[in-house]
Amino acid sequence: MSKDLSYLEAIREALAEEMRRDPKVFILGEDVGAYGGAFGVTQGLHEEFGDMRVVDTPISESAIVGISIGASLRGYRPVAEMQFADFISCAFDQIVNQAATLRYRYGGRASVPIVIRAPSGGNVSGGLYHSQNPEAWFVHRPGLKVVAPSTAYDAKGLLKAAIRDDNPVVYFEHKFLYRRAKGPVPEGDDIVPIGVAATRREGGDVTLLTYGAMVTPSLEAADRLAKEGVEVEVIDLRTLMPFDKAAIFASLEKTSRVLIVHEDVKTLGIGAELSAVIMEERFDRLDAPVMRLTYPDTHPPFSHILEQANLPNPDTITGALRRVASY
């Protein structure tokens, strides 16, 4: 059985189901209580689960994560909400120094099963502090897992996997997709495993690696290339750390060409790492340099004109695909 849900509703359903299943799961964050969250993700949960399982916090991102770590050490599975992914920098120390290192420095004798939900991404005229894509910061830190769903189905299944995972997981949910991405979502337990990519479109000529809100425009661009006789395989990474190397290499075996598309800035974004790994381990399979189409190395501006000028879109992705295909 499945029903059509929005990406946002799918996140809410995962939270509710996991909280019903496991009394150790609880939510904390700013405005997550009776108000239901800045975007409405936690609406209705406070009513069902009460003050001690849907905990409204002061504006204290660092404490939100620190409290989550403390609770996790006593067997709880907290789901911390950062109101915007941009605010996650206020909790950076607790995530990268406290949570990421804890198992290692405890000699493997403890784990930190927390989820940090971070609404990320632009194209919503959010400006510099409501549009960021800080996923690469966390991919760069051993001990963390990082996921970024693009569909309602994955939003639910990946959040369930993240909550059940024994490691700290940073869960990037894209704000642009909240009400725009809709689709069938299975009722009940349908886990999307962490570390497994999804092939959204098959093709034998170019591999396009992407995630989050860039999946839909990438598919549109791939359809355009098909009219030109170029078949593009679109892989939705879904998990950024650990990313699905096997799926990437399997696609590369067919295509020998790779384009990476992401909304994060270019320098040391995920694309840099994917490109390096491909060249280190599959150089002899490549017929073209691995190319990237990303946001340029600048901040996400408020002006719609300025932002649109730089976000990858079906036109710019089409252009990049042509360059990779014809190299």
Partner: peptide
């Protein structure tokens, strides 16, 4: 704790919350 002084305090609050 880590070497970040005071970083144990939010964790302590989380333990106490449980």
């Amino acid at each position: 704790n880590t070497s970040m002084l005071g970083a144990n305090l939010p964790v302590a609050a989380g333990l106490a919350l449980t």
